[in-house]
Design a protein around this nucleic acid. Structure first.
Lengths: 328, 328
DNA sequence: ATGCTCGAAAAAACCGTTTTAGATCAATGA
DNA sequence: TCATTGATCTAAAACGGTTTTTTCGAGCAT
């Protein structure tokens, strides 16, 4: 059972490929094609189980109803949920997704971008690991439909959806102070040039009562467990009673390490960026700065589609969503 | 800066498209094309930043170096990790992925399969939500390269990679008994026709000392939180001292609900299929039947590639990996 | 000079669609 | 009678590659 093509339908009906194409694309009426002929075509298409070849179609019309999505790591629950939200919105609008991970590898990200583009994706949603906008400056110049999510670049005229990280981090630190914490530490993740991270650090710094109190720990993204261990060793003799974790992975690792050591479990207050399901069932409970993940994803798709519809005079938008403090 | 095509390179060098194509595909020597000409072509291709159009290529040769992946829900950590493993192996072998979610929606799964296939994917890795093999019988008949993962069908001659669910569940129940548990309950998830779930239930049943003791709770997959609440209400007056959760989502929900109620936290022993990071930092700690997710993913890709290389006399394989008991 | 072979490159066909520019033919109106 | 119109439908080009077939000379033997 070979796949049927337009030609197969056309020949078996004694009409032209063009007619079949028009009918199946719903342009039959518009082009004044006989109703009965139209019906026959549709009938035969169903009978032969015709599925249009998207590659031929894509080649011809240059659009493919496919959106590329590049994130650092789909197995990180935040990006997992983000992709889910993106996928739902995209699917509802008739678009397919090609999802890829960079694992923060800049070279891989470069390759993925060009791979996806020569696959004729119609647009790209990108949570970039680049440390600057130069790598994607070309896309902007070419006016390639692009939406940055989660991670953005300053002074870069490309649609983006992000959250108010500085503000969220400030809320977190303020929360710690409100709970009587005297010396809040920040567990950050490297690389710090990622906008969402640097903004959170900035928020932490800005909210400190005394900037000299700043205690900032850098955990490498590719060895979080080890990094947390080292950090805790180094903090052994320091006084601290509160921790602000810049993301859920850090918080999870911190929690595990504290549990293993049996240390500080009741003395330290922890708050993390990203609220994840388990934070209220662990000990100590972890408060969180919750991001509206669904909104981020859906809006990213909406922005992209708006851009498609409005190629000419599209005005660049930067959508910044607010976070919510979840106290525990 | 429009994208450069073969034709652009050919014209600017005064040679034919065919020559350029051959050279860039590394067939220059084989076809006896002048070394210098070859060098000029490569030079110019780089200069014009030439990227071949995959749709034209795919249309002509019928292969696209793209693998489709369909899972129930990428934001479920198990499938997130599975996709990550698949992606790493695939990427290393030069393949791209198109990942889609079904959310257990059978209609959506049908549509996705045909969508992906007419996108000319070279093969499909599928964690199916179908309740029987009929829906994909057609793929088998057409000898479409397909690998089932996680969820398989009986008596179905298609490559598959799964774990020994019955055995794993038995290990879990045995573990509970070993810990002195008298009345183990099984928290299962609907729909139960999913092979991995039904096998785990089967394992639970088979390992019970007294089959009359069987206590099986069905939680609907689309309302786990609510389902767990209802279940706990119903179990209010029952005696039980151990729980076997058929997957990590159920375990997480159970844990949360117990924590909210402040009930049973110290009296009940919980073991779950799927080991996830948080199980050792929650209270009570949750033991687990750990699945070799990476192996599942990598082997699925390997099987598919083997099939590509060996289209003619490929022997169908069913790979069943063992689980590991993680005691806590 | 004629016919052959051989190396190198060009030309053409092809993949399956979409779309443009006509073609065909019957009915209409002046 | 003949251009016009309208309703249907078609031929062919185009998209950008890959692959098969041809062409073109040069070199060589007869």
């Amino acid at each position: 059972m070979k796949k049927a093509s337009l030609k197969d339908i056309a020949e078996s009906l004694g009409v032209s490929k063009a007619l079949v194409s028009l009918v199946l694309n719903g342009k039959g009426d518009e082009r004044g094609i006989n109703k009965q002929t139209q019906e026959k075509v549709r009938q035969k298409a169903k009978e032969l189980n015709y599925i249009p070849n998207q590659y031929a179609r894509g080649l011809r019309i240059g659009r493919t109803n496919t959106i590329g999505v590049i994130v650092p790591d789909i197995s990180n629950i935040f990006y997992g949920k983000l992709c889910k939200a993106i996928e739902q919105e995209a699917y509802a609008k008739g678009y397919n997704l090609i999802i890829s991970n960079t694992y923060e590898d800049v070279q891989k990200e470069k390759k993925l971008i060009s791979d996806l583009i020569n696959r004729n994706i119609d647009g790209l949603i990108l949570a970039s690991s680049f440390d600057n906008k130069n790598e994607i400056e070309g896309l902007r110049e070419d006016k390639f439909p692009l939406v940055l999510v989660d991670r953005v670049f300053d002074d870069f005229e490309v649609d983006s959806v992000s959250v108010s990280n500085v503000d969220g981090a400030k809320k977190a630190v303020k929360f710690l102070y409100d709970k009587g914490i005297k010396r809040p530490v920040c567990f950050s993740i490297s690389p710090v040039y990622i906008s969402s991270i640097s903004e959170r650090i900035q928020g932490y710094m800005g909210a400190l009562k005394d900037p000299n109190d700043a205690k900032l720990v850098q955990i490498p993204h590719d060895n979080i467990e080890g990094g947390v261990k080292t950090a805790l060793d180094e903090l052994q003799n320091e006084e601290y009673d509160g921790v602000f974790c810049v993301n859920n992975n850090i918080a999870k690792a911190l929690l595990r390490e504290l549990a293993i050591r049996g240390e500080k479990l009741d003395e330290v207050k922890i708050i993390s960026f990203d609220d994840i399901e388990i934070f209220d069932i662990v000990h100590p409970k972890i408060s969180a700065i919750s991001q509206p993940i669904e909104e981020i994803g859906k809006n990213a798709v909406k922005l992209l589609l708006k851009r498609f519809d409005n190629e000419k005079d599209h005005v660049t938008q930067h959508l910044v969503l607010d976070t919510v403090l979840v106290e525990r």
